[in-house]
Write a protein that binds this DNA or RNA. Sequence first.
DNA 1: GGCGTATATGCACGAAATAGCATATGCGTT
DNA 2: AACGCATATGCTATTTCGTGCATATACGCC
Lengths: 96, 96
Amino acid sequence: MPLALLSALAEPTRLGAIQILADGQEHCVCQLMTRLDASQSRMSRHMQTLKQAGLVVDRRDAQWVRYRMNPDLPGPACAILEAVLEAAETEQRKAA
Amino acid sequence: MPLALLSALAEPTRLGAIQILADGQEHCVCQLMTRLDASQSRMSRHMQTLKQAGLVVDRRDAQWVRYRMNPDLPGPACAILEAVLEAAETEQRKAA
DNA sequence: GGCGTATATGCACGAAATAGCATATGCGTT
DNA sequence: AACGCATATGCTATTTCGTGCATATACGCC
């Protein structure tokens, strides 16, 4: 399990998406692509990857597809995720 | 920092090497290649990658090069590593 | 049904990662 | 100096990954 999770997170756009979704809210693809400055197909594909890795879940809502963190993420995976998010945040702070 | 670390860990042979080095001991390349069933050049290159990512440190000892975990791994990286190792261990247990 | 917006996907391409083979380098032994 | 063992590295082939472009699909609205 860790291998799939790690490869899914080891890409800038995908990690960025996870950071955004880490607020616990739902976000549609168009929001993500705007905030991450990614093209539509690119963002869509990355979200597929995250979905396959079990990190996120999607839901159709009218014309939009809303992504959110997978609430049933198993414990070990959750621990990795938290550590990664914490590290990313720390890194951004030091950039000041 | 998390990106480099994640990419370094997101490969089976490298993750295996880290798991072996997690015992806190030093291990030379020949030990690692035997235990992980990898060719010499392959193992050497993967260790270079881990070294560049700052995960491991090496030391020449006669004809051998001994690798060990980087003792100065920064806190956030350390947290990620621990979570990954824990997840890997959990996964192996469930394989019974 | 036709149109506009949002998202997914087939296809092709360039970039990067991985691996093997051969060879170089470092070190101890004789 | 010659040899053997351990490790690194140059070169190349193969594969995988990320991307853009075009197109398909889904949905709401008129």
